[in-house]
Amino acid sequence: MTAEATTRLRRKAVRGWLRTVAAAGIGCSTSVFSHSDPAPVELLLSGRHQAYQAVADGLLQGLTRTAAGRRLRVAQQQLPESEPSAEAALLVAVGARACERVLEQQAVPILCVFIPEGRFRTLAARKRADQLLGAIFIDQPIVRQLALARALLPNAKRVGLLAGAQLSQAEVALRRAALALGFRVNLEVSDGGKDVAPAIRALLQRAELIVAAFEPEVLSVSTARWLLQGAHHRRIPVIGYSAAYVEAGALAAIYSSPESIGEQTAGAVLAWARQRQRWRPPVSYPEQFELSINASVASALGIDAPSLEVLAERVDRLIGDSR
């Protein structure tokens, strides 16, 4: 699948919906910050990958859009060379490794951004009770993928999902949301071991379309090949969670860019700067998303794909409808 066949579109999601989801998942606690800290915000990147730097750039850019944000002093550190400073008023960790590291700091509000939801929840389980910890995930909510599937395949009935532990726990909510969009869910659960192949084989035999959710244990990059090959063999469309998935053979994908996550983080930081002691750290999915579609795959599957703008509008609408 070539890059030319893939079309992408950035789209901002509805903020209010997101907040709802976030508030439901994260517990909050209060904390006091000093106003006179020389570098009240410290940014710790997990590595040198350009994605982390793009998050940081988006954050700084978002800050500069407001006077308060421009007044803030932000110090940037990067693993593995630097350690988080104990004197920071707010620690912003970009990526899972940075988040793991900053959790060792005491009495400092922490905001972990650009982190998979499952990973954050594992780390958050280790935090102390008095620690203020917020997050902005990489993952898209499964409803967005289902909305995209519905927007592309209005007539499809059975949607198959390969579920690990994370998705299994939310099976009820998932089925509810799928139902809202007119899908019956065919969920194949696997622990990621030897049963992945039979699970995929079963999924391919029953599903009309497959939504590949970001479930690392079962649907890693290694098994994505089998899924895509089988689906292709059976002429089953696959809705992925990254641009790379579309390039590898998925029909379409929905995802958020690091820059948009950075800008979203800037808003959270500004809120921290405004509210300080009243500030409650957010735990949320990305507010903005992007779409990507593989025209070749669509053509091979005989799907008449609309333009991305139209598709985005449909997705927005479907999300709104499903809510």
């Binding site: 997990s46 590595g47 990958h49 994605a51 990526g95 899972a96 650009f114 982190i115 998979p116 990489i138 590949a212 970001f214 990059v221 994505a224 090949r225 895509l228 992925g240 969670y241 990254s242 641009a243 790379a244 998935y245 590898a248 053979g249 998925a250 995802y255 690091p258």
Partner: peptide, 9 residues
Amino acid sequence: TPVADHPEQ
């Protein structure tokens, strides 16, 4: 088959 856009995936 690579399907990740960045290291966090």
